[in-house]
Structure formats: C-alpha cells, structure tokens
C-alpha cells in the first residue's frame, strides 16, 4: 500500500545517518496510523516532529526506537546506537514510594557523583531526595531527561518534553535541550505540538499528519502551505494548535477519512 517514495530531508549529509526511516507505514488491524513516512537523522542534528493529536507522532518515534516494528518500510539505526528516551509522561503510581535518586539508579549503572552532575545539568539538583509523586510537571520532565542522559546517549528521543509545563518553563526546557545537544554532541529526535516554541531550538521540522505533510527548516515549514493548512493560518500564528483546519477529515476514532489525495510533500 505504501509506494516507496523517498522524501529527502533538507540538505543531503555526507555521513551515513544515525537513523533512517524509509517508507514506514503502520496500520494495526487495518486502521492506518502512519503512511509512507521517511526521515533521516544525522549526528548532532535536532529534528522535531510536529503534528496534531492523533497524527501518529508517538507511534513514529516508537518505531524509530525499535519498540514497535513497522508494517511496511524499513528502519535502519546505526549499529550500537545508544538511545536515551524521555517518555511523554511518567504515570507515577501514588502507591509506589520512589525517590528521585532511586528512580535514576534504576536505569543504567551510575555513581552518586554522576547522578548529582546530571541532575545539576538539567537544573533539578534540589529534587534528588524528593519523592517522584511530589514533583511538579517541570521537575518530573527534568528528572526524566536526567535518566535519559545517564545512558550517555548518541540519540535523545523526547516525546512531548514539555508536557505539563507552563509556557515559561517550556521555553527553558527547549533551551536546555539545545544546550544538551551542544554539550553532548548527540542527536535529538523530539515530538512537539508547538512549532513556534521549538523553532529556535530545532534544525529541522517534520510536519506529520499520518504522512509527512511537509518538512525542512523551521522557518521554511512555518510558511509552507501544507503546514498552514494543517494548523490553520490563525492557529499557526497564535500557536493554538488544537483548533486547526485539516485538508482531510478524521472520523470519530481518529482515522483519516480520505476524500482526495493531496500532493505537497
């Protein structure tokens, strides 16, 4: 069902990419979630996937990390690629008493000194001995980022890293992510629903709505007719992304109701 059209991303880089998706499709029990998605991620590159709810962003990064096999297409990761993953949200069970330090030590083997260093780097030193269930949204996201960094990742995968964080905190977190990329020389693949907030901290953007609607540098994408159509002109300007006009309808279950094929990618 997917025609293997390779959509090259921005300028072709000389080195082999850390991550290469070719024509990836995903349709569990016939419900299409992703169709013919291709992307490349090179070292030290920050690539942001934006799109409305139900666009398949989380599914896409799960496929990229190898948690879920795609139904069509191929995923190639550089051999021995160390991935640090920051999940969308940690549902901390209030019934489980768990301190931040203990939570971080559940991940890769580490030392107390390194724990403190990493927590300082993400700006969360003060929560080392706090209970996970007492953290604010921003603190929890920083702790999750610290856990991902403890793996000394070559690729950081961040699923909506600013979820549950206020607007000021969101800008700070995105700055922190850029800083981490510069310090650690790692690539970043992140999901966001807000192009304007990530604009200054991302190299490339993929606008996803079950397929790649458009891609390129953030300024380029923000003026792309496909992006404007997907997020709505006023919506795109005002960052209110949840009320947008589609070029295709979604049914109640979130599936795409295809009326026509559109060519813009």
């Amino acid at each position: 069902m997917s025609t293997n059209v390779n959509t090259p991303l921005s300028s072709p880089a000389p080195a082999t990419p850390l991550l290469h998706l070719r024509g990836v499709g995903f349709a569990p029990s016939g419900r299409e979630i992703l169709r013919d998605v291709s992307l490349q991620l090179h070292s030290s590159q920050i690539l942001t996937v934006i799109g409305p709810n139900g666009a398949g962003k989380t599914t896409l990064i799960k496929i990229a990390m190898g948690l879920v096999p795609p139904h069509t297409g191929t995923v190639t990761r550089a051999s021995g690629l160390r991935i640090g993953y920051m999940p969308q949200r940690l549902q901390v069970e209030a019934t489980m008493p768990m301190q931040v330090a203990r939570f971080l030590r559940l991940g890769p083997a580490t030392t107390p000194a390194r724990l403190r260093d990493v927590l300082r780097e993400v700006g969360a030193s003060h929560v080392l001995d706090s209970r996970l269930s007492t953290l604010s949204g921003g603190e929890l996201q920083r702790v999750l980022l610290a856990r991902a960094l403890l793996r000394e990742p070559q690729l950081l995968v961040l699923d909506e890293p600013t979820q549950g964080v206020d607007l000021k905190g969101q800008a700070e977190l995105y700055r922190l992510i850029t800083h981490i990329r510069d310090q650690h020389q790692c690539s970043v693949l992140m999901v966001s629903h807000d192009l304007h907030l990530v604009m200054s901290s991302t190299d490339d953007v993929i606008c996803l709505n079950q397929h790649v609607c458009c891609h390129g540098h953030p300024e380029q994408v923000s003026n792309d007719p496909a992006y404007l159509e997907l997020f709505g002109r006023s919506g795109a300007a005002a960052m209110a992304v949840y009320t947008h006009h589609h070029n295709h309808h979604h049914d109640l279950a979130g599936g795409v109701v295809k009326e026509h094929q559109h060519e813009h990618s």
Binding site: I83, Y85, P87, L90, V92, M96, M98, L106, G107, R151
Partner: peptide, 17 residues
C-alpha cells in the same frame, strides 16, 4: 526486583534501556 520496578514505572522506558 530492580528490573521489575523499572518495568512497573514505565514499560517503554525499560524496553529502550
């Protein structure tokens, strides 16, 4: 014990690790 705790806290995170 520790792997089961990691699994309980976040399955996908445990899987990536």
């Amino acid at each position: 014990w520790n792997p089961l705790l990691a699994l309980t806290l976040h399955q996908e995170l445990a899987q990536v690790e």
